[in-house]
Amino acid sequence: MNPALKTNNRHSHRTWRKFLSPILLILTWEITTRAGLVESWFLPGPFLVFKTLYGMTISGEVPYHTAISMGRAAAGYLAAAVLGIGLGLLIAWSILIEDFFDPLIELIRPLSSFALVPILFLWFGVGDTSKIILIFKSCFFPILLNTIAGIKGVDKKLIMAAKSLGANEGQLWIRVLIPSALPMIITGLRISTAMAMMSLVGVEMLSSDSGLGFLVIDAQRTFDTQRVFAGIIVLSVVGFTVDRVSRIIQSKALYWHTQTSLGGQ
């Protein structure tokens, strides 16, 4: 058999195998509830949950809350990406800027985003602004630190090689330093997509009248467990999709890098 076909075949086998554990989980879950081992307000069966989810989707409830949540996450995330990469480049460029910002970064970074919630609510109210700022805070530091580390980690001799080829300071940054640091920067951007999803749900649960976090906590308050599970499933699917998309973007942007690491060189 053609070896290329063989690997292809093995690859599709692997894809199918990965469906095994979710299917088993859902089956066990359904059987447990059908057998009456737990009460349905405590743990509704998957069939009921998906039925509720279907209803909520048809009624427009799920799309509405998803759109609101994604809007908040995107706003906080994009602001963090722009400012994180921007400040990261400045810090890597100038030691003066680094010394100025470093103490602030080290003090704010380890702080839990949620410690800021009372102040944010006090200053900006419970609306979108404070939520977006909180998401921004969660996403900003991974992007910032990865940008700094990426630029600072560029091989000094690669810089020498570029200079000897005639690169001036601007060309050195745009054509050598930033492309070299891109794998690190993109890793920071990917870590932050997960951070954005996590803090989004948290802050929407604390205080909100919309969004997926609100959907889940509101259902819990009325003991509507089916809706709670439906909301969690939406969150899980959204999170998974965001990660997949960012992974695809990463491998497209860094075709040379992924290839290198996969090639084991």
Binding site: M160, A161, P179
Partner: peptide, 9 residues
């Protein structure tokens, strides 16, 4: 240089 130092991208 000894280390080639090509631009990998």
């Amino acid at each position: 240089f000894q280390e080639f130092l090509l631009f990998p991208w």
